[in-house]
Amino acid sequence: MQDKHLNISAGVASVSVATLLVIAKIWALSVTGSLSIAASLADSALDLLIACAGLLAIYYAARPPDKDHTFGHTSAEDLAALAQSVFILISAAVIAVTAVRRLLATTPHQMTAEGAGIAVMLLSIAATIALVLWQRYVARKTGSKVVSADSLHYLGDLIPNIGAICALLASSLLGFQHLDSIVALIAAALLVLGALNIGKSAWDALMDRAAPPEMIAAIETMAQEMPGIYAYHDLKTRMAGSKPFVNIHIEVDGDQTLREAHAISADLKRQILAAYPNADVIVHKDVAREADKPPHD
């Protein structure tokens, strides 16, 4: 329940910041005509759409399992993250094409009211830093892919915002107009890289990719060192959103009582959940082969 509240708080914060920045950048674009601000505005507008979709996905993914979704709804996070990557790629393409057209134009585009644009971009940077810090905290606590992807995207916004300030200063102090388009191209390239990373992570999860290797290695170590487990096999993992699913077969002494065998498997499950609280863990018990048992004294 705490994870749900944290994720929703990060989603609400993202929507609020994106709304504020869209309004501020629309005004800044209207008074400056800066392409770098236009690129930042397009990014913030997509941020707003994505943040709204992400908030809905977070809320839906937090719903408990039901008759039709016995493993829960956490894959909604991956679908939202995949949609984010597509929107970001489209945004980057539009920005890049516009920037190239301006660079090739015979008459440079003139910007005005650079001071107002700089003030808006400073506001954007301050709000973005505050949001990213909160999202990073929530992502560490909950492991939410949607919050993590949103944080990565906002973090990528900082460089274009700083670049926009540099472009406005270059126009105001030096009369150099092309830096605006160059900054927009750099921003588009950063958006593409971020989108590909987000999309790959979401695609891997939707295709039931295994949990991270370090998590698998840690679970193997737990099974090897747990008293009463002679061997283990068929360790299978997959990720759905921020939730890992773990299935493992352990081999125990067939001569002991069912209560004793269950206590061993319960101990292993508790140890895995202590390390990965959000995991869904199933431990199967099999009778150990005589060859796997230690020799009697």
Rank of each mutant, 00 (worst) to 15 (best):
L193F: 09
I198N: 00
I88H: 00
A57I: 03
V31L: 06
I159L: 15
F245H: 14
Y137H: 12
P294D: 12
A99S: 09
A80E: 03
K145Q: 14
S34G: 04
V120H: 04
A81P: 01
R270H: 11
V94K: 07
E214C: 09
A83L: 13
I95Q: 06
K293G: 06
K67D: 12
G163T: 02
I8S: 11
A105P: 08
K236D: 03
A45Q: 05
L174H: 08
P294C: 12
A127H: 02
L46N: 14
G199H: 03
H73W: 02
C52A: 15
L122F: 12
V86T: 09
H109E: 11
A10Q: 07
S91T: 15
R270W: 03
S40D: 15
A28K: 03
E260C: 08
L41Q: 00
M226G: 09
L21S: 03
I90M: 10
S34K: 05
H69G: 07
G33N: 08
L79T: 07
A113I: 04
A274K: 13
D255E: 14
A205G: 08
W27V: 15
L158M: 07
H284L: 06
D255H: 15
A126M: 09
A13R: 05
E260G: 07
V192A: 14
I125L: 11
F245L: 12
D150S: 14
L168T: 03
V15W: 02
P213G: 09
A62K: 01
V120N: 04
L179P: 01
D180Y: 03
I50M: 13
E251T: 08
V94R: 07
D253M: 10
E251Y: 04
L131W: 04
D280G: 02
N7I: 07
S91H: 03
P227G: 08
A99C: 06
G11W: 01
I182P: 01
S30D: 09
P213E: 13
S172M: 14
S44L: 06
I95F: 00
L6P: 06
V132S: 05
R238M: 10
P160L: 04
A279V: 11
N7Y: 01
L123M: 10
D150A: 15
D47C: 04
L123G: 11
H178D: 14
S181F: 06
L258M: 15
A170H: 01
G115K: 07
Y59S: 12
A164G: 06
I58S: 08
A218L: 10
A127G: 07
K200E: 13
G175R: 04
L191W: 01
D286K: 06
H109G: 10
P108Q: 06
S144K: 03
A116F: 15
A275F: 07
A210N: 08
D253V: 08
A240Q: 08
D286I: 12
V94F: 09
I95P: 05
A210L: 12
E214F: 14
D234V: 12
A61P: 05
A211M: 12
D150P: 07
A261I: 12
E220R: 05
D66K: 03
G199Y: 05
E260Y: 13
T74F: 10
Q224K: 10
